[in-house]
């Protein structure tokens, strides 16, 4: 049986929600999104003086009758939104029960479903893997394709988060909203966010951590081995060390959050033990990531 990642109740929850980007993006096909580009659509945008050659169907006859002055009505164009769902598939995402990757996959599926329901174009991509040319998913019927892609993901990426994100940003991906689902366990994550924003993307970062990462329950003399490589670190896990780790983690989270907000995006932190309904309610709806 095909794994649809989400349960039926979660589908029902998401069916009435749409992505709510902070800013509008030009689309390639007519969709359900308003674009800043003035065009011929049905939603009024502004007035301008008539110039020769204009389509007289958009002349405001009422103004002409009252003021005897030809004024043209302009409309905002309605286009589809490019939604890039970037799921971190690096080795560090294999931690937790369920794993951070599984949690990110589920959240990504939820966002993808909401985007598809809103008529947006979803571009799934894996962080930590070599870059590929993703094909857009459109319409709810494309959701199973997302699931097949997502279920194939394993936490075995070998490319760093920074390098992978920069590679994505440097590609010809349409500017749109980036749903970055990662644990952010890369000291250069801030740089990656800045790079994404610099390419015109709206960066929405959902940081997925395990409860163990937030409150480590370790003691004794340990040699910490980074699963993504690098020299090991010898520590004595005592109250002093744990306090210092806590300070470092909070500082790192704060730096991510600050950078995301600075570039006009959104930030949320969740854990692997938080259920999707709570995430949607507490982070996405309350944080206006999704709107009804």
């Amino acid at each position: 049986m095909r794994d649809m990642i989400l349960s039926s109740s979660e589908f029902r929850l998401l069916e009435r929600l749409r992505l709510n980007p902070n800013k509008a993006f030009p689309g390639r096909v007519r969709g359900e999104r308003l674009t800043t580009r003035r065009g011929l659509s049905i939603e009024f945008a502004d007035y301008r003086e008539y110039t020769e050659g204009d389509d007289l169907r958009h002349l405001d006859w009422n103004v002409l009758a009252r003021l005897d002055q030809p004024i043209m009505k302009t409309y905002r164009d309605e286009e589809d939104l490019a939604v890039h769902v970037l799921i971190d598939a690096s080795a560090s995402m294999s931690f937790g029960e369920p794993t951070k990757l599984a949690q990110a996959r589920k959240i990504g599926a939820a966002l993808c479903y909401a985007a598809l329901m809103g008529g947006d174009a979803v571009y799934p991509a894996a962080i930590g893997e070599p870059p590929s040319k993703p094909q857009p998913l459109r319409a709810r019927s494309s959701y199973p394709r997302f699931c097949r892609w997502a279920n194939r993901l394993g936490a075995d990426g070998t490319v760093s988060l920074e390098a992978s994100v920069k590679s994505f940003a440097a590609s010809s991906a349409r500017p749109g909203i980036v749903m970055l689902l990662t644990d952010g366990m890369d000291p250069n994550t801030v740089s990656a966010i800045r790079f994404l924003a610099g390419r015109g993307h709206e960066v929405n970062l959902l940081q997925v951590l395990t409860p163990m990462e937030l409150r480590p329950d370790i003691e004794g003399d340990l040699r910490l081995i980074d699963i993504e490589g690098g020299p090991p670190v010898d520590i004595t896990a005592n109250s002093i060390t744990l306090k210092e780790y806590d300070r470092n983690l909070n500082a790192h989270i704060d730096s991510l959050k600050t950078e995301v907000l600075r570039v006009g995006g959104r930030y949320a932190l969740t854990t692997t033990d938080e259920v999707l309904e709570d995430i949607v309610r507490d982070h996405f709806i309350r944080g206006r990531w999704l709107a009804a």
Partner: peptide, 19 residues
Amino acid sequence: RRDLQVPANFLWPERTDEI
């Protein structure tokens, strides 16, 4: 020391109070 795999070790201070 006991080896422990972690997602990342850049957040950990290198404190070796050997006791």
